[in-house]
């Protein structure tokens, strides 16, 4: 659950807060847990819902990231190259660096398996905006991955 919280947070301290708040809510609503799915999935859903609530409360954080003009990577990257050169923690920290809306859309789509119309409904945005945000989030991640791999190679 700590990984889930980290994915939805911008830093480690926020992830800790989210985990704590999430488990407090779990304690408070444990009696409502029914025989539908696993306990882990239920707790995970509570934490994701809490992350969405936090996002909705902090409306001013919904600033869109300014994509740099040269964000398109010039170097084609394969999954094998990325996974061989970067570890999971480095990738997780890149997700944390995404702007809040991009981070939420990326997490909901890639990790929770939500559809664009579901994401749009939960975040109060249009379906097109959800698709656009996901695309931009991936572009940003791709750029940051390229830069990170380039820096690592030069450092070596």
């Amino acid at each position: 659950m700590m990984v889930v919280c980290t994915r939805y947070s911008s830093d480690y301290e926020s992830a800790q807060d989210l985990l704590q708040e999430g488990f407090i809510r779990v304690f408070q609503h444990l009696h409502q847990f029914k025989n539908e799915g696993s306990l882990e999935g239920w707790i995970r859903r509570i934490i994701v819902n809490l992350a969405l609530e936090t996002y909705r409360k902090n409306v001013n954080l919904r600033n869109q990231a300014e994509l740099p003009s040269e964000y398109e990577s010039e170097h084609p990257l394969s999954a094998e190259d990325i996974l061989s050169q970067l570890n999971a923690n480095e990738l997780l920290s890149l997700v944390q660096q995404l702007p809040p809306t991009y981070r939420l859309v990326f997490n909901l789509y890639e990790f929770e398996g939500a559809k664009h119309h579901e994401i749009a409904q939960q975040l109060g945005i249009s379906e097109g905006t959800s698709k656009s945000n996901l695309h931009d989030a991936k572009k940003l991640l791709q750029k940051w991955v390229s830069k990170l791999m380039y820096d690592n190679n030069n450092h070596i």
Partner: peptide, 9 residues
């Protein structure tokens, strides 16, 4: 890139 992040994290 989405699959890469998913499989790693």
């Amino acid at each position: 890139i989405g699959k890469v992040f998913r499989s790693a994290i």
